[in-house]
Computed example of a mutant assay.
Amino acid sequence: MIQIKNIHKYFKTKEKVLHALQGIDLNIEAGKVFGIIGRSGAGKSTLIRMINLLERPDQGEVIVDGTDITKLSVDELRKLRHQIGMVFQHFNLLNSRTVLDNVIYPLRIAGVDKESRKARALELLKLVGLEDHVHKYPRQLSGGQKQRVGIARALATEPKILLCDEATSALDPETTQSVLALLNEINQKLGITIVLITHSMDVIRNVCDEVAVIDGGKIVELGEVVNVFLHPQHSTTKALLSESGVDADAWKLFSDNVHGDVIRLTYHGVAAAEPLLSHISRELELNLSILQGSVGKIKDTPFGQLVIVVNYPEHTPAEQAKAKMKAFFEEKNVDFEVLQA
């Protein structure tokens, strides 16, 4: 659906030339919710604005449905943008127009007849839960309600792609959750591809299927959210997770006082509910203690992660017991990683 190939972007100032995007490559499948996360200045806003060419690359290709959109004419690009909706951080509503008129506005520009555009706008306001607010003005709405209007407006022209530029960063935590739930509902009901940028791993965890971590204009980690969240590789990813309360290396605080093998177990889906530790400890007569643990949900997938210390019985060779334990967990689709031996 969306391919970004070797994208480079430069911004010139009086003092220097900033290389904002440095050889970005991404493939975003149709129907997925794809997250781009990074700190301020990492390049994520510039990157998402490449998808509808609000920012043009200095080098590289942006391919949507097989077409390199950097080569389109002005008229062709205008038509393409009807297929790409955008939701903004600060809503960007027309304060002098009602909620209904804000949603109607892009349909009027697109040349949709009066009766059809009103019907479409009312349908969308019902979808986002604002059917009772159609005649209000933006100043009469809460932040969450304003963003729902922004989402309805972005969907007006029936786009295939929805871009969300920090769509929840101006909202309180409870409202953020409701807006993320709405985006998830829209993705499931309409099959629309959603690309969002954020600085929060909690947003990624709640709504995204795949994620790209960007730092210094480069993609430093990329993959399914479950894998990136539970097995972070890059220091930037680990730092972002730690800031959201998930520190995969917290067990190291106790490492000097540990006697035995330190093992990380990661499981998701059905395995998250099974009493695996009690089973293996009885079967192999292991002494187990938990150094660190967490449970939760990544989008719709329950997960758990434990860091345990294992001491083996004296009558069984340690390597033999470890091999049996590893085989047991792998059979149960639990990732088994020796952190310290």
Rank of each mutant, 00 (worst) to 15 (best):
P173T: 08
S40T: 10
S235L: 15
R120N: 04
R282P: 04
A239T: 11
E123N: 02
T198C: 05
G304H: 03
R264W: 08
S142P: 10
A248P: 01
R282W: 14
R139S: 12
L107R: 07
N184T: 11
K16V: 14
K326S: 08
A167N: 02
R153F: 10
W251L: 13
F329H: 02
K12L: 11
S281C: 10
V228D: 04
K189P: 02
T98L: 12
L122K: 06
S169V: 11
T175F: 08
V213C: 09
G269Q: 14
R148I: 09
Y312F: 12
T198V: 10
E61S: 07
L21C: 11
K44Y: 07
V220D: 08
Y312G: 03
Q140I: 14
L180P: 01
L127H: 01
G269F: 13
R117E: 15
I197N: 01
E15W: 07
R282A: 15
A121V: 09
L54N: 08
G144V: 07
L80G: 06
S96G: 06
A156W: 10
L241E: 08
I2V: 15
F34A: 00
H135T: 13
N6M: 14
N92Q: 11
H19P: 07
S281D: 11
Q22N: 15
D65Y: 11
V220T: 07
L53E: 06
V62C: 07
D300C: 06
A154E: 01
F303H: 01
Q233R: 12
S289D: 05
Q305T: 13
G143H: 08
I48W: 11
D202T: 05
V87D: 11
F229W: 07
F11A: 08
I24D: 00
M50F: 08
S255G: 08
I36S: 03
I84A: 01
L182V: 12
G129P: 02
E331R: 00
L240D: 07
I109E: 14
L284I: 04
A170D: 11
V213S: 01
R139D: 15
K332H: 10
H231T: 09
L141V: 11
T301K: 03
P173H: 01
Q140S: 09
D335M: 09
D65L: 13
V213D: 06
I24M: 06
V62E: 09
I69M: 10
E115P: 00
L291Y: 06
K136Y: 09
R120F: 14
A327I: 09
H8T: 05
S244L: 09
E243V: 02
V149T: 00
G66A: 06
N52W: 12
Q59P: 00
H259D: 15
H135W: 11
V262S: 03
I69H: 05
D256T: 14
S40C: 07
V112F: 04
G129D: 13
N187K: 03
A250Y: 12
L241K: 01
T13Q: 10
D25V: 13
D113R: 05
Q233L: 14
F303R: 03
T193W: 12
Y137K: 07
S116T: 15
Q83G: 05
E61D: 12
R81L: 15
E285R: 08
T67N: 05
E131D: 14
L183F: 04
I263L: 06
I69Q: 01
V195Q: 05
L253N: 12
E123W: 04
K218Q: 14
L284Q: 12
R56E: 15
G60W: 08
T193R: 00
